[in-house]
Design a protein around this nucleic acid. Structure first.
Lengths: 147, 147
DNA sequence: GTAATACCTGAAGCGCACTCCAGGTCAAGC
DNA sequence: GCTTGACCTGGAGTGCGCTTCAGGTATTAC
């Protein structure tokens, strides 16, 4: 019986929502326009009132966006969600695919870190040597890729 | 004495360079325009000839770009390199800063993975349950954030 | 000589994910 | 009654990192 008119005391104003999720008011509206958020509740004056479910969902959106999922893919995911439980396998597949992508990215970055570390070490050596023997700083045998 | 006119048999054509570095011909030119690559050698017909040093450098550029360093930051880094060894400390600082950023990103992604795994697990359970007891699939107590 | 291929240049265009703007409404405070 | 502030709308603008285009040149293959 309290399905429709409860004023929902926990609802958030756009400003509060933005602050608590780290997603700007404009971006929240943008997400709604793009179908990443189904139409948000309104107060009598037409202002949006975000529910805690909205907040939770936006946090998930952020998590997926932060890991590079496109707006397009997120829209697909949302639409599947709206179509009911029978789309769960598809949603699962989508998430698993995304997870794989993210794991790959992590791997790429780790390898990059190694490479960067190499250069860091090279510079560190060079600099400490330059400090010690102000002269005679031949780049030693085959200085790797200067720059 | 062989400082200038050696035809350099190991030099790469744009097409070869693109294939071997995974960076397109257009992007290579773009990088050069943007000062990420100092002007590349030319054959007598005006075509670019990339040295193995160029190749090495482009691989580093890729590594840094892949980990999110901006074109702007890369330009700075290159310019420092052109200014001589006395900029090594600055370059070192730049790399260390970037490394920190990349480590942070990895951390963010790992956390995201955990969250994604949660949802994957949730869907997996839901789906297997739906398969087993085609009926009576109440979402159990407090189904977390459907969608 | 002709055509195909590989490259050149400067400049315009594109896709993505926002972000900003102009002009308007509503409620509260003075 | 008037101002202020938070929010609304549709639509235009922005920044980044390429990518494409139009028009041209040099070498090789026939």
């Amino acid at each position: 019986m309290d399905t429709k008119k409860t004023p929902d005391h926990t609802a958030l104003t756009p400003a509060q929502m933005a602050e608590q999720t780290g997603v700007s008011i404009e971006t929240l509206r943008y997400y709604e326009r793009e179908g990443l958020l189904q139409p948000v509740e309104r107060a009598t004056n037409g202002h949006r009132r975000y529910s805690s479910a909205d907040k939770h969902w936006v946090e998930i959106l952020r998590c997926l966006r932060d890991t590079g999922m496109s707006i397009e893919a997120l829209r697909t995911y949302c639409q599947l969600g709206e179509q009911g439980v029978h789309t769960q396998p598809e949603r699962l597949a989508l998430l698993e695919e995304h997870k794989r992508l993210v794991l790959d990215e992590i791997e790429t970055k780790k390898q990059a870190i190694e490479r960067i570390d190499h250069k860091i070490q090279y510079y560190t050596e060079q600099i400490s040597m330059a400090g010690a023997t102000a002269k005679a700083t031949q780049p030693i045998k085959g200085a790797p890729h200067e720059r």
